[in-house]
Design a protein around this nucleic acid. Sequence first.
RNA 1: GGCCCCAUCGUCUAGUGGACCAGGACGCCAGGUUUUCAUCCUGGAAACGGGGGUUCAAUUCCCCCUGGGGUCACCA
Length: 468
Amino acid sequence: MVKDTKVRVRFAPSPTGPLHIGSVRTALFNWLFARSEGGVFVLRIEDTDKERSREEFEADIKSGLQWLGMEWDELYRQSDRGEVYKEHLLRLLEENRAYWCFCSKEELKAQNEAMLSQGLAPKYSGKCRSLTKEEADRRISSGEGAVVRLKIPEKELSFEDIIRGKIVFDGALIGDTVIARDLESPLYNFVVVVDDALMEITHVIRGEDHISNTPRQIALGEALGFDMPRFAHLPIILNPDRSKMSKRFADTALREYIQKGYAKEAVINFLALLGWHPEGDREVITKDELIQEFSLKRVQRGGAVFNQDKLDWLSNSYFKQMNMEEFRSQLQEFLPEGWQPNEVMISSVKERIVRLDEAKGLLQFYFEAPDYKTELLSWKGMSQERVTQSLTKTHEMVEGIPERDFKTNKLEERILGLVSSENRGEVLWPLRVALSGLEKSPSPFEIMAALGKKESLRRIEYAQKKIA
RNA sequence: GGCCCCAUCGUCUAGUGGACCAGGACGCCAGGUUUUCAUCCUGGAAACGGGGGUUCAAUUCCCCCUGGGGUCACCA
């Protein structure tokens, strides 16, 4: 049956923690698919777990998506939809597709462990399945605790995964699944099916870890008489040791990447390449190009290791190509109050930075006189005497340059003109250290241009005093 | 352990039976540019897990093994 309907996808995070980078990747693939198909991207907050869901995390999810520019077209919150779920739950009970189960947690746990130790997959015994409606109602009204279970048919439950092809499960091995704690507290496997159907979701694009939930959801969809969406299960993101990505190896929350100041274009580009690849050998791809080229057919099947080095490289390469004004405004948020770096400082930062939170350390010496170990002034084993000579000579040269020539290229021209090529290092290294206090820094010409004549001389004098 | 998924350089991947003694990118190594670092340029090492088939021909198709992963909640 080919339905000629508009593509509708959803990103359905539960607000029980900060937005995970793996979820972001799932969101991105959904978003890209929707945009590339001219479809609708739905954001659905799955907050049926009242204990664990927090508003703070819903806010984190939304701001994260916004930061990346993944705008949603429709927004739903499951906690607003209690009536809808209740109605469907009642119908299932009424039609005897689901039933009340009175087994205690302890009882269930013991059964599961027993089966596990026998080498069998844990499965509910079906004990309460045969209870009559009258019996169940009576026990409920007498105040006995009970949950709702869906009858899982003992037959093949299969689906055609867009990425993986046909996946087959044996319903007989699954066992009746709990779909609600009570009429007011439906559970994940239930609400997801109801919502996907009612929201007319056409494609469910989610992590591979949901494959094993799919047969239950299909059984439920059948019980409810719903048309099922198509499924596409994405490979999961892995640690370097190939286990499921965790905090032990890398930051897992998007907000940590935001706080560290990664380029958002890099985050998107990097995540897109984790499990997907465009045609051809391209690596650096903008969001618009991604939309142009995205296709579920090109999604990888195997898990992908999160490669921090590549993210870093991408982030730096996006900063390098970013225009000055844009970079300046992003940078400013990461600098202390009052620091107003000029063009030269900004461009040297822009060239080498991976994360904006490194900028402070990179720029500090421009705004505060540096301190450093005296030995650092010495280049390749220069003696103290030669360093002193070098600084004296440098001081002379710099003093002779008029303030108006304190431009990177002019300074370079004049100073290099006065220094013979064989001892450039001996002149430039001590000078650079005197100016920056650092082993690694931009060129002394750049620094002097930024500092101006007076401050440059002051720092050279300080170095002279230090070495003496 | 049951069920399910997966398998090309260290990593992300290209590759859909011959065009591949397997291409790109990150990382790594070497050299060059640079006072230093970064950038940049040049070059290099580096992979089809194993065994059976199918075929004139398999990285590519099938099976088995091995390996890795996911999942087995009154979480999502």
